[in-house]
């Protein structure tokens, strides 16, 4: 734990650049290591993953560059390189590495990246949908019935074969639906990035920003719902 308290405003800033070195108490100017005593510095718990990787909050990013940065930071923080150091430095190395690994895992995957950005910009996206999206309501209810029937059916029977064919078709439809949602998300990602690049502080820009975030949230939540249904379906017919 950093032991500091932060208000919401300085959340966005690189905490380390402003704090003191835990070891020599000098004003910190270096990025992850104290300029004066070269000790590794704890990454602030409030540092967001984009900042950690030195990236702007955009949804399109170059995976090669992300990986290169991950490797560079791993070489800086990994506990393997702190075996001969003090206990305090070993603890910092362990915590920083764990944080770095989480950050990389989150940013590497486009969906997790978007969910994380949404969380930063507008609060958690994790409220799990329990009812089907409106445009899929009928289909999903029917699918649930078919699944129930299939589960209780004799797998060798002719009826089961018919149900299986139907379920296969449903799976194809849902997977297509998932791909459509991912395409929609891609468009929203591009719109988000373009808006951020323009950096306008106008009322229409703020409204556009709110719309994009809301649409992203809806599609992400629908996509998760459909994905769970598909997984359930696959597990049942496997």
């Amino acid at each position: 734990m950093s032991g500091h308290t932060h208000n919401a405003d300085d959340r966005r800033e690189l905490q380390m650049a402003r704090s003191m070195c835990w070891h020599c108490q000098s004003e910190m100017a270096g990025e992850y290591f104290c300029d004066r005593c070269v000790k590794v510095q704890p990454v602030s718990k409030d540092l967001d993953y984009f900042t950690c990787f030195g990236l702007p909050r955009r949804l399109a990013l170059d995976p090669q560059a992300l990986e290169a940065k991950f490797y560079e930071l791993s070489r800086a923080f990994h506990p393997d390189f702190y075996q001969n150091k003090s206990d305090a430095e070993q603890t910092i190395s362990l915590d920083n590495s764990a944080m770095l690994n989480t950050a990389y895992r989150t940013l590497r995957d486009p969906i997790q990246r978007a969910e994380y950005l949404l969380d930063l910009e507008a609060g958690s996206v994790k409220d799990i949908r329990t009812t089907p999206p409106a445009d899929l309501f009928e289909e999903i209810l029917e699918l649930q019935d078919t699944l129930d029937e299939f589960r209780t059916s004799d797998r060798a029977s002719e009826n089961a074969a018919v149900l299986r064919t139907k379920l296969d078709a449903d799976r194809a439809t849902l997977e297509q639906r998932q791909r459509d949602m991912e395409a929609e998300l891609q468009q929203l990602f591009s719109r988000w990035d373009a808006l951020q690049d323009r950096g306008e502080a106008t009322e229409p820009a703020r409204a556009e920003r709110g719309r994009i975030l809301k649409d992203m949230r809806d599609i992400l939540s629908n996509r998760t719902y459909v994905k769970n249904i598909v997984n359930d379906l696959l597990a049942t017919i496997a």
Partner: peptide
């Protein structure tokens, strides 16, 4: 090799 990494002998290799 891993032992050598930990003792600071090998510095160019890192296992994740």
């Amino acid at each position: 090799v891993q032992a050598d990494i930990l003792s600071g002998g090998t510095t160019d290799m890192l296992l994740l």
